[in-house]
Design a protein around this nucleic acid. Structure first.
Lengths: 348, 348
DNA sequence: AGCGTGACAGCAAGCGCTTTCTATACAGGA
DNA sequence: TCCTGTATAGAAAGCGCTTGCTGTCACGCT
């Protein structure tokens, strides 16, 4: 039924071993023989059996990319960059790798499930993107998995995610704290004193770090923070919308709203507008990430640009062993404050 | 070094066959034995060897999802929906499947490469999303691959993609032509007579169908189309920006701009604003897809809503054999016109 | 008592490939 | 001419798992 190596060998009048060697190209094969084999492969329309090959060679060409939300461009952009450094006919002959992205939906269980599945497949490398969940049992379960993966020879890279101690994982971490701080400092510099903050889900590292940066800036400016000024929600537009209405309800005198990311900021803008407030005359808004749409909305969004594509590409290269990991296995990537139309001096 | 089935068997004092059966749960095993095996698995921290299992069973639990651009929410939303119907502990015991998304970047070669890779892995199913490339040699190469995949037992589903004749692939197709027509009819109904059109890349089915719908509407209204009113570009914000400037240069009297999709429309809005034109007072703008941000931009975008998540979920279910394919293997999914703030009566 | 019958468990034969080791052939050097 | 070295091809032993088939009991029925 299906064509096997042996069939090709028979047709090319050589042994299966020779066919395998031609296909893998890591052993000398006479030019004429190779030619003959290749022709047979073509004529028979032969396709290598991946599992069999992975089993025999004890390695596979699968590379997994874990993302929290595939529908969010934040992850899409990183995944795309990672993949571009991995997939395609870029390496040694026949060295195509199957770069696949797995959507955890932010669920710890699914994250673990995917890691197990990738471990099963004996993946060549795994890249985890985005913030980690801080729940202790889960965090250590993930760490254990990563350790085991590393021991099995799978290269593990964290992109936009905090380092995983006791693990051989390479980490490219975003300086969320620093970015958050800079952003809020900018707002304070404009004169804002009453700033609402729409944070992401409670247990995420990203959420915590950005919030810490924000609070550090407030503290440095001697502004005492009212706990009512912070609302938690998901990292999406809708959460921003609802959180903003809540914030307005709690304290209508707020002059600025800092959002956990750009999507949230978008929702915040919508809520403010519907409440009859102008941006930035009545209320300033700031986002985080600098996703492509941020410059297009009206007014354009003040935010912190994260070099998602660059970081992803680098993570991809490291995962493929084509770039030296940073010293100590950890690199911190800074964001850049982008001041745009959505932030201005507060109404007096 | 690594723990194998045999190790587990030894520890549980049973044969490897029994362990396998416990793990696959498709053969009666006494409760106490199962219990013992499961304990051994746990103690040894055993992880099944995917390739070995796939080889022996001649099937794998990989499901591939091909997308044109993973950074584009259009695909992200579909992929997410597909995946949610496939991955996770949703099916029979131990029936987790590895749903992976592969980013072709719109390149025909990469599309083919990924299909081959998935064929290699003996994927259980493959879902292709989004428009197809119309280049003849490539189209038939893809059709051949799909046919072969189908013969090998891989279920093939097309989601938001035209049917592939001579193939066993199930197709859930978006009615791009109808949606395009409806959208332009709406604009014509408002009184527009000079409409610019920003189309996607030339050789895509999606591009062609939407454009055909647009032109059909014009023809039906007796409006003769000026070829200068159409500009082609990529499906992204930047292309929309540039195309709009070009359109304005060619004919400043245009009163409406119809974009190939929402991202393009966003770019168009930016270009119009920078050119000092108000939306919709001076120029109306329309998009396509109704991505989440479309309702948030100012003014909110008139567009055609495509049920991306629903279609993706359905495709996922069909791919898993959990839903009957549509009669004839083809279903057409209609879009819904969403009239919002970006379209109005033309200036007089 | 004898035996059919379930209900489990084990044996062993692969699944299709990679890779080590061995065989062959020819070339050149002594 | 014989021997050694080099290049290339083949034989065969698995890789770790699944599964058809073959036991082996313990029952319960006639």
């Amino acid at each position: 039924m299906t064509v096997t190596l042996a069939d090709v060998a028979a047709r090319a009048q050589v042994s299966p071993a020779t066919v395998s060697r031609v296909l893998n190209g890591n052993y000398p094969v006479a030019a004429t023989t190779r030619e003959r084999v290749l022709r047979a492969v073509d004529e028979l329309d032969y396709v290598l059996n991946g599992p069999a090959s992975a089993l025999a060679a004890a390695t596979s060409d699968l590379v997994g990319i874990l993302v929290n939300d595939i529908a969010d461009p934040f992850f899409g952009i990183m995944a795309s960059a990672i993949q571009s450094e991995i997939g395609g006919p870029g390496g040694r002959a026949g060295g195509e790798r199957l770069a696949v992205v797995c959507n955890t939906g932010g669920s710890p269980e699914r994250e673990l499930t995917y890691l197990t599945l990738l471990q099963r497949q004996r993946a060549a490398a795994v890249v985890l993107t985005g913030g980690a969940v801080e729940d202790e049992p889960h965090a250590s379960a993930v760490a254990a998995k990563l350790r085991r993966l590393g021991e099995a020879g799978t290269r593990v890279v964290l992109c936009g995610r905090p380092p995983a101690p006791e693990t051989s994982a390479i980490a490219l971490t975003f300086d969320n704290r620093g970015g958050g701080r800079e952003l809020t400092e900018h707002l304070i510099g404009l004169g804002h004193r009453r700033l609402g903050y729409i944070a992401g889900p409670e247990e995420r590292t990203t959420t915590r770090h950005r919030l810490e940066g924000h609070r550090a800036a407030l503290a440095a400016a001697g502004i005492e923070e009212d706990p009512h000024w912070t609302v938690h929600g998901r990292y999406d537009r809708r959460a921003g919308y609802e959180a903003t209405l809540e914030l307005l309800r709690r304290d209508p005198s707020l002059t600025a709203v800092v959002a956990a990311n750009d999507s949230v900021a978008l929702g915040a803008c919508a809520a403010l507008r519907e409440s009859g407030l102008r941006i930035p005359e009545d209320v300033s808004v700031a986002g985080f990430d600098d996703l492509p749409f941020s410059i297009d909305v009206v007014p354009s969004l003040t935010t912190v640009r994260l070099p998602l594509a660059e970081a992803g590409a680098r993570a991809g290269r490291i995962a493929m062993g084509r770039e030296e990991p940073p010293p100590g296995g950890i690199a911190t990537i800074r964001g850049e404050l982008m001041v745009r139309g959505s932030s201005g001096t507060p109404r007096t």
